[in-house]
Structures are given as C-alpha cells and as structure tokens.
C-alpha cells in the first residue's frame, strides 16, 4: 500500500461555552473538512498562518485530540476503506460499520489499538523548552516509550537509548543530565530521539525549528533528512515558514482557516501558486536578497477568527478575485495540473 495516512472529511470543532448554565454557544472550527493523503516515504509540508488549524490537524492525526467527525486511516487497505465508505453512504448505522471503524479508524481507537498506533505514529512538539519533563533525566525521557510499551528493559534499554542519542547527534555521557542543561537545539534532538524510540513509521513535526536559531535550524533539518533516509520514515511537517517547506518537503499543502486551499509540489507552489492566498503567502515571504523586495500584493486585513469563519470560501473577504459565488458556497480541492490541487472558484 502506497498511502500511509488517509484523512477524510476531518473536522475538529472546539465548543465555546457561555452563559450561566455553560451551554455551548458556538464552536471554534479549528479543522473544517480536510481531505489529505500522505504517501509512504513522503515529506508533506503543512503550511499556514496562526489559526489555520495545522497544529490541530497534526495532533488529531496522531490522536492526541479526538476529531469531531471524519476518518483518519493509518495503513489501511483500500478495500476496507471502500467498504466503510459504502456502508456509510448507505446510511445504515449497523454494528458491522461500527466494528470496522473501531478496527481501522484512528478517530475511534481505544485500548490496545490506540497503544499500538502510538508505536507507529509520533509527534514532535514545537517548543523544546516545554516538551521535555524538566524533572526527568534525559535517559529516562528517551527510554519512556520503551518502558511504556515494554519493548526493552534493563541493560538493553540503556544501550538503545545511548544509540538513539548518538544517532541524533548528542555526544555520549550525557544520560544523567536534565533538560535545562541543554540548549534549545539539543533539546529538540532529545525530543526527536524520544519519538524514534519505538521505530515508528510516521512522525508529525509541529514547527520543530521555530523556537531555534537559524544555524541550529539548519542542523536539525539536515538531521531530519538523514533520519528519514536511514529509517524510511514518512513525515508530516508543519511550519509557517514557506521557505523551509519549499526547501525540504516533497509535497506541500497550504491551509487557511481550517481548510486546505492548495496542494502541490514545492516548485509549483512557489513559482506558480494558483490560490490567491497561497500567492499572497509566497509574495509576503522575505528572502535574504535585497533585489527581491516583497511585491506590493500585501494582503489587507486580518485572519478572521476560526470561531466565526466567513460563509462560503473562508478567504473571500480578503480576496481580490472574490465573486458572489465565493460568498455562497465553499470550493473543494480540484486538480489543476500534475499533482496540483486548488480549492478556488477562480484559480489564478
């Protein structure tokens, strides 16, 4: 099977409670209907600004958050997926459907299946300063997944931890230290080592370098490249910096207000973006080249709140090409080229 992760119609709404009786008065629509497939061995970049839902999406895929609706399939055969779709569209809410979902849909996993998922899919957090328990020695931090899943113990465990730390570029003899004794870049390496402990197939990265310096960032990115090649990993890489995504990912999805608005190869997104938002994003990204100043396609206004998204196409209030159609219905991802999809009624 080529497809490792298959996300279908994923939605995550966070209820807002208000009033004396604390009734739900609204919802923050963090993820609002996302369809995405990640192929085995792919490095998919998820790009967007704050509030677009990319972090929520990644956390939902690894089941740190339970989705409101939709399905996430991890390494499931096409046949099974087709069967589930068929049963669902037939509208029958029978036990066969429920049991199939319990077996295959990450969204409904619990107990053993969930535990098993955790061995195969991991997430590396954004802030290396808060993602490691400050009161644990790093040898215990990295060994924790091995202990939880009872994979190795005792001496074998310690050897494995040493190897992992060496693999991510930390010198030996640091096992007894605490996180605060390391720099940001080193801490992120420890977090990566922890994620690799159970030999997962899929790792989601939530802006792993945004809290780090430029030179350290380059080191971490190269490390990720090497690890991917060595262990045959699949990456979901979240970032708000288009430049990083363009330079390391082999596929990019651009998100805006809970939806994917454009998907394609880095060259396509960077040189010929078809969605107006993607184009603004590319144009607004500063490059260290004094000749290439930001074009005056500066995007006006602010990102609307995901608690109150505009109707129809979420981008239309700021879009220079918006028409009535954009106000009424939401566009879906349509192919516009070789492996290039756009969700827009008037792609550029």
């Amino acid at each position: 099977m080529n497809t490792l992760v298959d996300i279908r119609r994923l939605k995550k709404y966070f209820p807002i409670v208000g009033g004396v009786l604390r009734r739900p008065v609204g919802a923050v629509k963090a993820v609002d209907g996302v369809n995405l497939t990640i192929r085995r061995g792919q490095w998919l970049g998820l790009v967007g600004e704050s509030g677009c839902g990319k972090t929520t999406l990644a956390k939902t895929v690894v089941r740190l958050i339970r989705p409101t609706s939709g399905h996430v399939y991890f390494d499931t055969s096409d046949a099974v997926k087709a069967e589930i779709e068929a049963l669902e569209s037939a509208g029958k809410n029978n036990s066969k459907l429920t049991s199939l979902l319990k077996e295959n849909d990450v969204a409904t996993f619990s107990g053993k299946r969930l535990s098993s998922l955790r061995r195969h899919a991991q997430l590396v957090h954004q802030d290396p300063f808060t993602s490691l328990d400050p009161r644990m020695k790093i040898k215990n931090i990295v060994a924790e997944p091995l202990t939880i899943h009872k994979v190795l113990s005792g001496h074998a465990q310690e050897t494995a931890v040493e190897e992992l730390l060496a693999r991510v570029g930390l010198s030996t003899g640091q096992l007894e230290r605490y996180p605060h004794q390391f720099s940001g870049g080193q801490r992120q390496r420890i977090a990566i080592a922890r994620a690799l402990a159970t030999k997962p197939e899929f790792i989601a990265f939530d802006e792993p370098t945004s809290a780090l310096d430029v030179s350290v960032q380059a080191q971490i990115l190269n490390l990720l490249k090497d690890l991917k090649k060595e262990f045959g990993l699949t990456y979901l890489y979240i970032t708000h910096e288009l430049l990083i995504a363009e330079s390391v990912c082999d596929h990019i999805a651009v998100m805006y207000l809970g939806r994917v608005v454009e998907m394609g190869r880095p060259e396509d997104i960077f040189h010929s973006p078809r969605h107006p938002y993607a184009r603004s994003l590319v144009a607004a990204t500063p490059v260290p080249d004094p000749k290439r100043r930001i074009g005056h396609i500066v995007l006006p206004g602010e990102v609307p709140s995901p608690a109150n998204p505009p109707p129809g196409c979420a981008f239309h209030p700021r879009c220079s090409q918006a028409t009535d159609e954009c106000h009424e219905s939401a566009p879906v991802l349509e192919p516009v080229g070789d492996d290039h999809h756009v969700a827009c009624f008037h792609p550029l």
């Binding site: 960032q217 380059a218 080191q219 990115l221 190269n222 430049l243 363009e246 960077f270």
Partner: peptide
Amino acid sequence: DAVPIPGKELQTI
C-alpha cells in the same frame, strides 16, 4: 548559507 532557499543545499555551521 543556512537560510533555506528552495533548490539550494542547506549548509550547516
């Protein structure tokens, strides 16, 4: 050199 530019090899320090 360490700034990621599309198409360019990332050089680390």
